[in-house]
């Protein structure tokens, strides 16, 4: 079997004296969806920030294909162009229309001509059910629509890897479905996704691998079925009991 697309080895991250990630080993193979679950402060978001080079790691390595992302000699901008990120709080640019949001990176960072970038963006928006919103500004859209625009923006540069950081956590419950449907569609199209999520139901049917983090360590990992239905580690059992109790 060929090597995984994203390979994290012995990753360590600390803020001040506090260790927030420790001995993280994780592989994300091409076309896989890997879900990170765990309580707040468990290190899920930090792990994603390290992969996207928004934080420097304190030890260990991250490889994306042949490139070592943790190499300090790396051109971080060039590496980030290969990764698409969607944040919990959308972070759309409020002074740009939906279309401008989606075409900014292809045009400026990838040098794609406006006409071509807009054509691709419109195709993407069409697929995400946002075709008629292309000329609107973000403040005219609902949370779910904004987050779908954010996904379109991340997809516009045809990234090799997508990072989703609790992309439904800020949404009203009735809007969560429309965003998760998009993620399911992306999985079917064969994209590679590493995501932090609190949506256990979604993780169960969409994830190829689920990792449970606690205190900056991966406590348990396996198929969605294994981790979510038959958790072996006591802390995973406790966490799932707490989460499912309120469903």
């Amino acid at each position: 079997m060929s090597e995984a697309l994203l390979r994290i080895r012995n990753l360590r991250k600390q803020y001040g004296g506090k260790t927030v990630l420790e001995s993280i080993d994780l592989d994300v193979a091409e076309h896989q969806v890997v879900c990170l679950i765990g309580g707040s402060g468990s290190g899920k978001s930090t792990l994603l920030r390290c992969v996207d080079l928004l934080d420097t790691v304190d030890d260990g390595t991250i490889h994306l294909g042949e490139t070592e992302l943790t190499d300090p000699r790396l051109n971080a901008d060039a590496a980030r162009r290969r990764i698409g990120v969607v944040f919990q709080s959308y972070n759309l640019f409020p002074h740009m229309s939906v279309l401008e949001n989606v075409t900014l990176a292809p045009r400026k960072a990838h040098g794609i001509p406006r006409r071509e970038a807009e054509q691709h963006a419109l195709e993407l928006l069409e697929r995400l059910g946002l075709a008629e919103k292309a000329r609107d500004y973000p403040d005219r859209l609902s949370g779910g629509q904004q987050q779908r625009v954010a996904i379109a923006r991340a997809l516009a540069t045809k990234p090799e890897l997508l990072l989703f950081d609790e992309i439904t956590a800020a949404l009203d419950p009735e809007l969560v479905g429309e965003v998760l449907d998009v993620v399911t569609d992306l999985k079917q199209r064969g994209l590679t996704i590493l995501m932090a999520t609190h949506e256990m139901g979604f993780a169960r049917h969409a994830a190829d691998q689920v990792c449970f983090l606690e205190g900056g360590v991966i406590r348990e990992r396996g198929t969605a079925e294994q981790v979510l239905s038959e958790p072996r580690h006591p802390s995973t059992q406790r966490f799932l009991a707490r989460v499912l109790e309120h469903k």
């Binding site: 079997m1 080993d25 193979a29 190829d208 990992r221 198929t223």
Partner: peptide, 9 residues
């Protein structure tokens, strides 16, 4: 479908 990395300590 499941590529397990090193087992977790």
């Amino acid at each position: 479908e499941f590529t397990a990395a090193v087992p977790t300590p």
